[in-house]
Design a binder for these strands. Sequence first.
DNA 1: GTCTATACTGAGATAGAC
DNA 2: GTCTATCTCAGTATAGAC
Lengths: 203, 203
Amino acid sequence: MNLPPPRKSFRETQFELREEAILDATNRLLGDKGYEAMSMDDIATEVGIAKGSLYKHFESKEALAGAVMVRLLEQTRAALAAIPSDRPAIERLEALLRWTLSQRLSGSVPHLPSTSPALQTSLMSNREYMDSLMTLSDEIGEMIQRARAEGAIRASLRDEFVLYTLYARTCDPTLEFLKAGGAMSDAEIVEQMVSACFRGMAA
Amino acid sequence: MNLPPPRKSFRETQFELREEAILDATNRLLGDKGYEAMSMDDIATEVGIAKGSLYKHFESKEALAGAVMVRLLEQTRAALAAIPSDRPAIERLEALLRWTLSQRLSGSVPHLPSTSPALQTSLMSNREYMDSLMTLSDEIGEMIQRARAEGAIRASLRDEFVLYTLYARTCDPTLEFLKAGGAMSDAEIVEQMVSACFRGMAA
DNA sequence: GTCTATACTGAGATAGAC
DNA sequence: GTCTATCTCAGTATAGAC
């Protein structure tokens, strides 16, 4: 009873490509200016279409931002899955943080939309976003517990604390300040952040 | 040639009290909803005066937010100065972080206005704010160098990195998430944050 | 210096032609 | 489905009476 794979018309392909382009532009602008400062006009200009056309693809600014965040979470899950599973859990967590920080430094939106209370609120009632977030958090949470079982996490720190801290590092303004300072390379910034996160600032 | 201290009229006292009340309300709202979401109407309502009256005290929303931030920086300098100076520098830094986190947990605006690119931009051209920030940063920077001289800071981390990281912890969303979670007391949250910041999450 | 009422602007969203 | 033009509304800031 297998149906042949639906063949996509040229129109459909074009449509999806444009939609990807919209998501890319929004992701960039979101990471750059933040949610409030990013206008639908900005996005339209960046993509090279009219503002009105955006609304044929996404019903609102909130929905558009939500789609960007969902895509990011799914990309993050993929990145997590791609990390070799034969390493100790703590190293996999470090690798994941390294990946997210690199993404952020190359202009992506932070995982935690902490720059905007408005966006945060709207995401809370976005079914698709919350599902993705839960799934990813479960996967990370599992890895945290494994790392703890391997004795690699300080006993005094709670699981939620570790999880939230990892998320929070992706929107840490230290990143932007150091990048703006210009004295450190992206790689060096990532290394200091990861190192400080796991091993602390004190000697 | 000493003049007698200027005696303040009842009117003047009232005026200053009201101004303090405005700053308090703004500080609360800023910490709660963020800069963009906080309207001048909100502030007026919270203080119990008309919106128009706000503009007799502060010429714009930006100026008002700036005044709040300057006051916060000065309070922070006072807190820093109040820490016993006979302790090792690293402990004084920890104590300062503890103070700022406690402030934040009790509703104050974070030191880094990272929630709003708009506010951040306006503060950059606020002479008074920048002066306060420089002064405080110099004082903290000096303490970082002392801690480093005492061998208490990891050699691989740059001074700017340590400074920015301390500032960034005051706007760390981990704080709000843990508080919202309700499973940890304010004191416990502060302790885990300080501990993780200086000694890391890894065992 | 406080109030009420209002002007002005930016931006999200929609209408209607093609 | 894309465009141009427009609607609507929230929110900053100001005017003018008292």
